[in-house]
Structures are given as C-alpha cells and as structure tokens.
Design a protein around this nucleic acid. Structure first.
Lengths: 221, 221
DNA sequence: TCCAATCTTGGAACGACGTTCCATCCATGT
DNA sequence: ACATGGATGGAACGTCGTTCCAAGATTGGA
C-alpha cells in the first residue's frame, strides 16, 4: 500500500506532485478559471484518465494546491511580541494571497480544512501569548482568522477584476464615479475619493491593529 | 424607451422580477448549484432565449438577487447608540445570510457592487456617529465591512457542508476529530472541543464587539 | 380594420466543462 | 519469457451557460 514510485516511466513520470505543480502554474497564470482539465492535460501532455488516477477530482486538486501555498507562507515560526508576530502572520498571508489570488476563495470557503488548521495554529499560539483566557481562545482566534481571510478574499476579488497596473486604477475610478452618483448615499459619496486612493495593504494592516487593540483592551483593560 | 409592461400576455407575463424571484427560490432551495438555466426554464415554463431577453447573463441574475436580499435586510434605519446600531446592522446581515447562504459568496466576491454600497452607507453613518475622524472613515468602515462579510461568508460555507440539523453536528464532530489527531498542532487540539460546541451567532457577535472595542479604544482613548 | 414594424417567446444547437470508461502499454517479480 | 497489475491517454457522456433563429403576440399608424 505504500506508494512505490515507478522511475523512468516516461521522460518525466506523472505524479501527484507534478500535477499539483502544473495546477498552481495554471491558476497563477489565468486565475480560478484557468484550471481546466483540458489545459492540465495539454500542459502535462497526457489525458484526463491519467490525472484522475492520481487525484480524486478538481476539488481535491484545489485543496492540495491551497494547502501548499499556506504552508509555504507560514512555515517560518512567528517572532517578536505577540502583536508583532500576529502582524507578521497576517502580512505573510496577505502577500501569499496577493501572489495567488485563487487561494482566497478556496480558503474562505473551507476555513477549517485545507490550510485552515495551520493558520489556526499559528494565530492561536499568539493569542495564547497575548494572555487571552483559555475559555476564549477559540473565539478570539477565529475572529482574527475571519478578519484576515475575509479581508484578503475581498481584496483578491477586487484585484481580480482587471489585469495588473492600469486595470486597478480604472476599476477604482469607475466604482468611485458610481458611488458619487448615488442619491441618498451621502456617506458613500463622501468616501469615494478615499476609496479611489486607498492602499490595500495599509488598509488591511489598519484592520489588524484595530482588532488587536480590541483584544488587548478587552482582556488587559 | 420607457418600459411599457404588456398585460395579459400569458397566464402570467415573464418579467425581470418574476425571473429574479424564481432564481432566489432555486438558490434558497438547492444552494448555489441550484441556480441553473434548465431549472429556471422548467420552473418558469419557458426557454432560455426568453430569459436572456430580460437578463444579460447568470452573473447579473445573481447580482440582482443579492442586492434584493441586502436591501430587504437593511431597509430599516439603525437605531440606538452607534455601537448598538452597528450590532443591529451586523446581526441583520448575519441572519439574512443565514437564511440565504448563497448571498455570502456573492457579496464577498464583489463587496463594492451589488449590495455593497448600501452596507457601506449604513455602516459608515454609524462610524461617523462614533466620532472617527474623517480621514479614517473609509478605512474603519471597510474594516467593519470586511469582518462582517468575511465572517458571514465563512459561516455560510461551513453551514453549507451538510443539510440542516444533524449535518452540522456531524460535520463539527469530524473536524474536531481531525484537529485532535494533528501532531505538532497543540493549539488546534486544545480548542477542538470549543470548536465543536461553539455557537456561530455568539462567536460572530464577539467579533463585532472586539472590533468595536478596538475602534473606541483607538479614537477615544 | 388591416398591415407592418417591433417586441417577446421558446426550442435547437454550440462549445466548454468535469467526469467515467476502457483498451492499451509497460515495469516488475517469477 | 511470461503473466500480473498499476499506469496511461483517448473517446465518450451528461450538464452547464450562452447564442441563434423562426414563429407568435402586440402595438401604432394608415
């Protein structure tokens, strides 16, 4: 039952790892819609049957790929004060999702599977270090996770609307114009320009700090 | 060019509203995968061509349906202190998403369109009332939105794993067993039982309070 | 009143997708 | 040298969103 990998089968033997690697390349290149069995078979010069012999279905492929990205982003232990460590974890996740936007949807769709447990572990240890009482460990940790994954998913979705560079400014400009034209929405009109000029990363970090302030205020006040 | 609705065309004339209504019914009954042009044509006793004459594509259908749910949830103005009003807004959204889980994915995939502006407006006014300085209006409001939508999306995704009632307990039990079996994940093991027994709504409210505490601490400290 | 222009309808057809099936190939152990 | 069984890849299926078009219904003007 232990997998004995056959060698020199083809020029390069088909394996679960090679398939996942190709899937990640397709996802990074063309987004969530880029992962297709047609594209996968062409890139690997094989047929769908061979792929299904190594992978159960497309969902498993996505889950394994997601897990790989999360593990790569969080394998290093967090350092510094609990606050700094949490900022570091959040930023590493933010950057990983920025580089692989398809991870966000997958992660927030199954936050307790795929890469979820590793995120929970990394965040949870710092929550413990912050002095949160044991009965609130789960609640506080998942609140942090929900903010981090939710914000990253929404940023990734907005970023995915257009290609890099010019697309973003155009998109933000269009949304700003839409907001400014909304009757009965004075607040949306008031912040339309802030929205157009905002920095995703800074806004994300501000959110982390807000939640951290809340945690510290709640438990050491 | 103004739409003059034709009357007594059929037993019940096909219209954008009737189509959206049918789409919501399908989505509520069978989840995101339940909205199909085949199911839609059968329910409306027509063909795909007729539907495409009233709606641009499936995406527009989803956006309009989402907007309808959000508007219904937030049409009442928020009352009480800014904190209470924000708790009320968040809870109304939470309950709406609990009743229509498909709304969550749609909203967090396009948080600045569909129902997004209305949420921004309702949340933003209370952020103003909290005394947040103008230059941080956008940042603070979007942090709240990101948490609310992100947490709701993740809860909806977890709830969607199984049918109502028995499915949830089973699912939580399986995840808890998985966590307890993870070597090198002491924190996940420690909170596995808390996870199994947690209440989604209470956890969500705790998150809101944490963020609110952070905002108040940051700006009125 | 009738006709022509226009809007509306619904079925047929298309390409792309995920998945299943199966005949063939080939490395291995005897 | 041969049989075994895992690995392979192409063909085929059903479903999806979408497009196209011929027919039907409705309306305004002659």
């Amino acid at each position: 039952m232990v997998a004995v990998t056959s060698r020199t089968r083809r020029a390069e033997a088909l394996s679960r790892e090679r398939i996942v690697e190709a899937a990640v390349a397709l996802l990074d290149a063309d987004g969530e819609g880029g992962l297709t069995f047609k594209a996968l078979t062409e890139r690997l010069a094989t047929g769908p049957g061979a792929i299904y012999h190594h992978v159960a279905n497309k969902g498993e492929l996505l889950a394994v790929a997601t897990d790989g990205v999360v593990v790569a982003a969080l394998e290093a232990e967090a350092a510094g004060s609990p606050q700094d460590a949490l900022r570091g974890i959040a930023l590493r996740l933010f950057d990983a999702i920025d580089a692989h936007p398809w991870v966000a949807a997958q992660l927030s769709a199954s936050s307790w599977q795929a890469g979820g447990p590793l995120i929970l572990e990394r965040v949870g240890r710092q929550v413990q270090a912050l002095g949160v009482p044991e009965r609130d460990w789960f609640t506080v940790t998942t609140v942090l996770m929900q903010y981090v994954l939710g914000a990253a998913a929404q940023n990734a979705a907005n970023a995915r609307v257009a290609a890099p560079g010019v697309g973003r400014a155009e998109f933000l400009g269009e949304v700003a114009e839409t907001w400014k034209a909304l009757d009965g929405y004075p607040f949306a009109r008031a912040v339309a320009d802030q929205m157009r000029e905002h920095d995703d990363r800074a806004q994300f970090l501000a959110g982390i700090d807000l939640v951290l302030t809340g945690i510290v205020g709640r438990y050491t006040g």
